[in-house]
């Protein structure tokens, strides 16, 4: 599904991770671990194509990827249904009903997103992934502010997605009980570049 070779990523002009390697076949999940500030978000943004890698290659079809950021990306004055329908149409008109069902949003569908609790908003923003119809989900801290029951809903969705030949890369600290590889990013922390590199120590 996606393969990463010798990838270096940078945040605000400074390298944070280097030499990251992994290959992710279909029907598998990859969980990124590592202390705060190690560069999980930066790596995920690079994989999603939001920023160019500093070095290395990302092999895979960018049209496979659906990205869910730390922020929910919801429009607060639109209803739950309108929010989902919008993303469904942007990604080519997929049915929103399975997503509503999977994340137990049926009772909320005509409520404005602004009136939802943080956990409900999170559920809505995760439901967005299902309407994209994309095979590779890139998730940044997907379980923030979810209660135990919602985490179970999410885990079940991920499992169903993997069974349908999908794949997922996520940065999370919670054990979802999903079969998947765990990649600890700590060993990939970028070392300081030599002071007199070819651009004269510019970093």
């Amino acid at each position: 599904m996606i393969e990463v070779r010798d990838l270096s990523v940078s945040r605000a002009g400074f390298p944070v991770l280097e030499g990251v390697q992994f290959a992710l076949p279909a029907a598998t999940a990859l969980v990124l671990r590592g202390p705060n500030g190690i560069g999980k978000t930066t790596l995920l943004r690079t994989l999603a194509g939001l920023q160019p890698p500093l070095a290395g290659e990302i092999l895979g079809d960018p049209d496979d990827i659906a990205y869910a950021a730390h922020a929910d990306g919801l429009k607060l004055t639109l209803t739950v249904e309108e929010n989902l329908t919008f993303w469904a149409r942007v990604f080519g008109a997929h049915d929103i009903e399975p997503a509503i069902k999977a994340f137990n949003l049926a009772a909320l569908r005509t409520r404005a997103a602004g009136s939802l609790s943080a956990g409900q908003k999170r559920r809505l923003s995760l439901a967005r992934l299902m309407v994209t119809g994309r095979r590779l989900w890139i998730l940044d801290e997907p379980t923030v502010s979810l209660d135990a029951a919602s985490v179970q809903l999410f885990a079940a969705t991920i499992r169903a997605h993997l069974n349908a030949d999908g794949a997922a890369i996520m940065a999370t600290h919670i054990d979802l009980g999903i079969e998947g590889r765990v990649l600890d990013l700590t060993p990939f922390k970028a070392k300081l570049p030599a002071l007199d590199a070819d651009d004269g120590g510019f970093l």
């Binding site: 400074f14 300081l192 002071l195 004269g200 120590g201 510019f202 970093l203």
Partner: peptide
Amino acid sequence: IRARRMKALIARERMSDA
């Protein structure tokens, strides 16, 4: 160039402390 280099050096300090 010198200001930029100085910024880079300070950032290196920070990175090696962290």
